[in-house]
Design a protein around this nucleic acid. Structure first.
Length: 511
RNA sequence: CGCGGGGUGGAGCAGUCCGGUAGCUCGCAAGGCUCAUAACCUUGAGGUCCCGGGUUCAAAUCCCGGCCCCGCAACCA
């Protein structure tokens, strides 16, 4: 049976959902919807990462204890994704009791196996940042944040024997070149693995940081962020039972932004090796969004909020823009004027207008009742049908390759063909000839088949619009499900709804 | 020894892995249509695919060299 396990990063709860995290969610949600509709067993995971220095600090700054603070922020993330229509199957929190327990079990197991050891660590510590710095990270020997000289500090900690698995991981990647994709990011990880990666410090003394998962074999320590957070990908499945775990691991498709490539490309696979678990299927790395050509940052005040975009232009339009305007793996630029241009051109003029003109004719000429096909077919009819067959095939190919922009492009070439078909067959002219009524009905029926198919093809990308199409055609079947053969999608004699404008044009203030 | 991404008609971008009519959106020009959200359809103008070498029957695409732009502190995908 086909199955797929889709994960997003766990969001660190010291910020709010923004364009970047929304992009990750929209990509993964689109995939999850796509594979579900194709009958895959699908598990789609997201959640929040809630331990660590910064959370403890943020909680303190807010005058709250960490638990109360993380409860609130985690809930805010969850409700934001709900409001965005994200269809995750499970929302994990690293503070969940089952996760904490699983992390501790895993630590115990790896410790027993000898891959976790205790050692003295000396480093340059900044008290302001509460963290160690490497010499490379320092600016003129000073902490880049506080511009103070760090203190040489010795500390005893637990270390994960990551270096032991370095060569094995390198071999795995070389034997599975698409383990990490796109290729550029695989190359980066290979480059990392060609240098000594060392061992990973996985603990913090409670005297310095108490907001974390306690090390089960030494209660003076808590575990450090990555050995906690990454494990969620497994603990979430385990929580749903061994059967769920067996079903979905290792069919994992991890999705991350390029900033956390190293933890997911190096730490996580070596951790899996130490735990005796098979490696995930793919690590899929996407790029960043700039806003008006500038890096998105709080200080610049150009952070794009997905909820604000939902208000402004609608979820479907926002999704469409992000998926159509970016190439997976590369950086892209968010501009409101491009968003409006895409919206008007693709959604309003091409897609929306197509639906309106067809439904209008159906309503005007036949009172909404779908007419029968005759046996003969014109070349135009065939071209229309072929355009959709092509689109269906292309979408499948491009989705497998995470080429969302091309998948949408191929759907739009079918939209274009549909608009062309109307001009070529000119039902609005034929209708004036009483002897051509049957042909007009047939042409419109073909177009309704096309629109039903569009609804199906678009469902993973534009779920709301697909539902609207389903409602307008008054279909009995869930439009996201695979459609019946061409010609049987909208039965003759069926009555459809009057036209409705799905995407009203946005008249720009300027120009 | 930096690492990575990019340089394609007026603007913004695909295409480059797997060489063979350079594609999309916007803009511009002419025409068509009137079912439609002044939308739709057709045609056209506009390109040294950063530069220089090489491989090849053939290079935006492969190889070598060079130039230019952007990101690589934190928040954060």
């Amino acid at each position: 049976m086909d199955r797929i396990y889709i994960t997003t990063p766990l969001y660190y709860v010291n910020a709010e959902p923004h364009l970047g995290s929304a992009y990750t969610m929209i990509i993964t949600d689109t995939l999850a919807r796509y594979y579900r509709a194709r009958g895959y067993r699908t598990f789609y995971l997201t959640g929040t990462d809630e331990h660590g220095d910064k959370i403890a600090q943020a909680a303190a700054a807010a005058g709250k204890d960490p638990k109360t603070f993380t409860d609130q922020v985690s809930a805010a993330f969850r409700s934001a994704w709900d409001a965005c229509g994200i269809t995750y199957d499970y929302f994990i929190r690293t503070t969940d009791a089952h996760h904490v327990r699983f992390v501790q079990e895993l630590l115990t197991q790896v410790h027993r196996a000898g891959d976790i050891y205790f050692d003295r660590y000396a480093g340059l510590y900044c008290f302001g940042c509460e963290r160690f710095y490497t010499e490379k990270e320092l600016v003129d020997g000073k902490c880049p944040d506080h511009l103070t000289e760090p203190t040489r500090l010795e500390e005893e900690n637990y270390f994960f024997r990551m270096s032991k698995y370095q060569q094995r991981l390198l071999r795995h990647i070389q034997e599975h070149p698409d383990f990490i994709r796109p290729e550029g990011f695989k190359n980066e990880v290979v480059a990392m693995l060609q240098e000594p990666i060392g061992d990973l410090c996985i603990s913090r003394p409670k005297s310095r940081l108490s907001w974390g998962i306690e090390i089960p074999f030494d209660t003076r320590y808590v575990t450090y962020v990555w050995f906690d957070a990454l494990i969620n990908y497994v603990s979430a499945l385990k929580y749903h039972g061994e059967e769920t775990f067996q079903l979905f691991w290792p069919a994992a498709q991890h999705f991350i932004g390029k900033d956390i490539l190293k933890p997911h490309g190096v730490f996580w696979p070596t951790m899996l090796m130490a735990a005796g678990l098979p490696l995930y299927r793919h690590l899929n790395v996407h790029g960043f969004w700039t806003v008006d050509g500038q890096k998105m940052s709080k200080s610049l005040g150009n952070v794009v909020s997905p909820l604000a975009m939902k208000e402004k232009i609608g979820l479907d339009a926002f999704r469409y823009f992000l998926l159509r305007e970016s190439v997976f793996g590369q950086d892209a630029d968010f501009r409101e004027e491009s968003l409006v241009a895409r919206y008007n051109s693709d959604l309003a003029n091409n897609l929306g207008n197509l639906i309106t003109r067809v439904l209008t004719m159906q309503e005007k000429y036949f009172g909404g009742t779908v007419q029968a096909f005759r046996s003969s077919r014109s070349p135009e009819d065939d071209s229309l049908r072929r355009a959709f067959e092509q689109a269906e095939a292309d979408v499948a190919r491009y989705m497998d390759a995470l080429q969302f922009h091309r998948a949408l492009e191929s759907i739009w070439s079918a939209v274009d063909q549909s608009n062309r078909y109307i001009v070529q067959t000119a039902p609005f002219t034929l209708v004036k000839d009483a002897s051509k009524q049957a042909r007009v009905g047939e042409i419109l029926h073909h177009l309704l088949e096309a629109i039903a198919t569009l609804g199906h093809l678009l469902a993973p990308f534009l779920p709301d619009a697909a539902k609207e199409i389903e409602a307008l055609l008054d279909l009995s079947q869930d439009i996201s499900r695979p459609p019946r053969p061409w010609g049987e999608r909208v039965p003759a004699g069926h009555k459809i709804k009057p036209p409705k404008v799905l995407f009203p044009r946005i008249e720009s203030a300027k120009n």
